[in-house]
Structures are given as C-alpha cells and as structure tokens.
C-alpha cells in the first residue's frame, strides 16, 4: 500500500488515523465461509489457484461468524434459511460488511416465488451487490474491490 515508498530512510510514517484504520480493515478482511447455492461454487473458484482471492488479503475463510468481518451471501436465501442468516449476521463483530453475490441474493433472480427472499437486503443491510447468475470469479473480485473502495472512503465520524 505504498508504505515502503513513504517510509524513506527515516523510519517514520505520517498519515491520518482515518486512513490507517481503513487501510488495515481492507487488507485483512476475513470473509465468512457461507456458501448457499450455485454462487458458492464460483466463490470457491475465486478462492482457488486460477483466481486466487488471497491477493486481496482474503485467503482466510472463517467458518465461524465470530471471526469474520465480511459475509458473502453466495446464493438464494430461502424462507427457512432467512432467520438463520440473520442470526449469523448478528453474531459477527463490528465492523461488518455484506456482499450480496449473484442475482438471487441481490433481487431474487429467476426465482420469483413463495420460497425465496426477493433479495437478501430484506434481512440484512447490503454494501455491495454483484450481478450475474452466477457471477464469474472476476465479478466477485470486482465486488470485493468495490467494497474496499467503499471502506477506504469511510469517515472517522462514522466509526469513532
């Protein structure tokens, strides 16, 4: 993140607290291992060797919500799963973010019926929506980078 360049020979960095905190948040953002449906397979592909999401500091998928900051809702959310998803979200420590991956999680997708929530934003607040059915791994990575961008622009007044 350019720290080496700023460091020079003096061993001292001057930056704003806001920037420092946002930078550290984006570069060790641990997603929760939360695969629901088809998109989970593409999420796995994004983790695997060809796409390698760990380039963005996200190699650690945590199975426990208590250890994760980012929930990637990968797939359709059924009426039976909705309460479970909300409980998992409530168990995550602040600060936390949500990516709705794929059309089903974003808006219900092709399944406009009794069994599926028409968008996970009915249950939890969503930060980034990734379109596609399922999105390509590049799409997910773009979504993650968009989220990083969002976090980098957060103001001190929001979290302090």
């Amino acid at each position: 993140m350019g720290v080496e360049q700023k460091l020079g020979n003096m061993g001292v960095v001057t930056t704003r607290l806001e920037q420092l905190v946002n930078w550290s948040r984006t570069n060790a953002m641990w997603p929760m291992l939360f695969g629901l449906a088809c998109c989970a397979i593409e999420m796995m592909a994004a983790q695997a060797a060809n796409y390698d999401m760990s380039r963005f500091g996200m190699e650690l998928m945590r199975a426990s919500p208590r250890q994760s900051d980012l929930m990637i809702v990968a797939g359709r959310v059924s009426r039976k799963m909705g309460p479970v998803l909300r409980r998992l979200y409530d168990q995550m420590p602040y600060p936390k973010w949500v990516i709705a991956m794929g059309d089903c999680a974003s808006c219900g997708g092709v399944f406009n019926n009794y069994a599926i929530f028409q968008g996970v934003d009915e249950i939890v607040p969503v930060d980034v929506y990734v379109a596609g059915c399922p999105p390509r791994p590049e799409g997910l990575i773009h979504g993650v980078l968009t989220l990083h961008d969002k976090v980098n622009h957060e103001k001190l007044s929001k979290w302090a």
């Binding site: 909300r86 808006c107 219900g108 406009n112 019926n113 009794y114 069994a115 028409q118 968008g119 934003d121 009915e122 249950i123 939890v124 607040p125």
Partner: peptide, 30 residues
C-alpha cells in the same frame, strides 16, 4: 401446502425505474 394449485405462487412485483419508489416502500427493511 405450496404445490397445491390453490396456493399462490407468491410472485412479487419486479422493480423498474417507473415503480422504483412504490416497490421500495413495500419492501421490508432490515
């Protein structure tokens, strides 16, 4: 029992630009 023919499909109106506000108003907010 969902697959009975007298059980409604549960179709929800799709959001477009012309009905954006009305659908948002109806949608549950977390």
């Amino acid at each position: 029992h969902p697959l009975r023919k007298d059980f409604p499909l549960g179709y929800e109106e799709v959001q477009f630009t012309f009905n954006f506000d009305t659908v948002t108003k109806r949608k549950p907010q977390p």
